[in-house]
Write a protein that binds this DNA or RNA. Structure first.
Lengths: 217, 217
DNA sequence: AAATAGTTTCACCATATGGTAAAATTATTT
DNA sequence: AAATAATTTTACCATATGGTGAAACTATTT
């Protein structure tokens, strides 16, 4: 039996064999480093160190920094956007959906703000997006669904007439900005991290109430 | 007459003589580069090129990348935060203030999103803030004033009872997030830059209306 | 005009960094 | 157990990058 592509299987664009444990460790390390430092700030050496392997191994498994980054970015962004999309398309009453959207973001593991921030920062550097709009595709569908639901509710008279897309932007803004701009807001409000997080906790209900008042017929 | 500090006057922490035209060009170039690429992505060479001078001159005037960045950051952040603070403390009716807050952000020169983004990104890298909380001081005052105004309005019955700080966060979120996360939202909504900007334009009135409904007694 | 001070350019350095070839080692096949 | 393939380590390389000293040049003083 002939083995094609020997010595190089990690580079193929087909699902390779089981990912080694090493490979996983490197991936996880890459995630941590890229998340915290961004593409430009990340060092292949740091990733290797965190994974406890030699730098050459990182290249062995992922070829280049760009490739490793692309992979990492897609994974992070995919999960993140998937979550948002899921809520957006969830089959729950509208008022509840608002609470969910906001709550999910403000009650997430510590990593979440990093994630939101990372995605936005790297998208803005246009390093990641242009070639891979795929990640965002499911979100676009979510958008469509959301607009439909809003329009339905408007027709049903349970919502005042408004632009669904604008509402969506409002909701995402309210839920994500406090995470993305945590450092800025902390400074502005004069809060340390603990106080700030305390302030975010339990905010969902108030915010949902806030929004519901604004969109009531 | 003895001249102290010869050959080195640019490095003193006292207001030096007139800033040279060259010095200004370098500062402006630094602003552009740092704004677009961030600290890690910025290259001293690029700054020099953009300013049309030799790289050594950049160091002559500003010593190190860190120093140049610190200077640039303070200037950018100072102006930006100052603007927000100004609106926050402006002596206008409350409803109007909301419109102003939102409008100023959505009707600014193209540079504005970059600025907001830059500040948040660099603050998050904690590269800039910890040593220089100064920049944010005026904003803290603005915060205090804003809270007072809201509380006054609540007592006067023109506002329903709510947490002023939370309201402030809402307002800033609504105005800044669409700028900060433009790339993300564009992708999500499937809009190109032109469409996106069109969507933002004229949004202020609707948003003000939105908020006013939410906070009406 | 000589001297001094300030500005700009040139030629470099040291180090950091992404990346690689090849040897060494450890599975896996046959 | 030989042979083959996959993994890991070692020792590098080329280039990019922040930074600097000194020469060259231009203003300013005296």
């Amino acid at each position: 039996m002939v083995k094609l592509f020997s010595e190089d299987r990690r580079l193929l664009y087909m699902k390779p064999v089981e990912p080694t444990e090493t490979e996983q460790r490197i991936k996880e390390a890459a995630k941590q480093i890229f998340l915290r430092r961004g593409f430009d700030g990340a060092r292949m050496q740091d990733i290797a160190d965190l994974a406890g392997v030699d730098k050459a191994l990182v290249h062995y498994y992922f070829r280049s920094k760009d490739k490793l980054f692309a992979l990492t970015f897609d994974e992070i962004a995919g999960r993140f956007l998937g979550q948002i999309g899921q809520v957006l398309t969830a089959d729950v009453p509208f008022a509840e959906k608002i609470r969910l959207l906001i709550q999910q973001d403000t009650s997430m593991p510590t990593e979440y703000p990093l994630v939101a921030n990372f995605i936005i920062a790297e998208l803005n550097q246009s390093r990641s997006h242009s070639e891979r709009p795929l990640t965002v595709k499911p979100l676009r569908d979510a958008h469509t669904l959301f607009v439909q639901q809003v329009d339905r509710e408007i027709k049903a008279g349970t919502l005042r007439s408004l632009n669904a897309t604008q509402l969506l932007i409002v909701l995402i803004s309210l839920s994500l900005f406090p995470l993305v701009a945590q450092s800025l807001l902390q400074a502005l409000l004069g809060l340390d991290e603990e106080d700030y997080n305390a302030m975010l906790t339990g905010r969902a209900d108030d915010l949902a109430d806030f929004v519901n008042r604004a969109i009531a017929p």
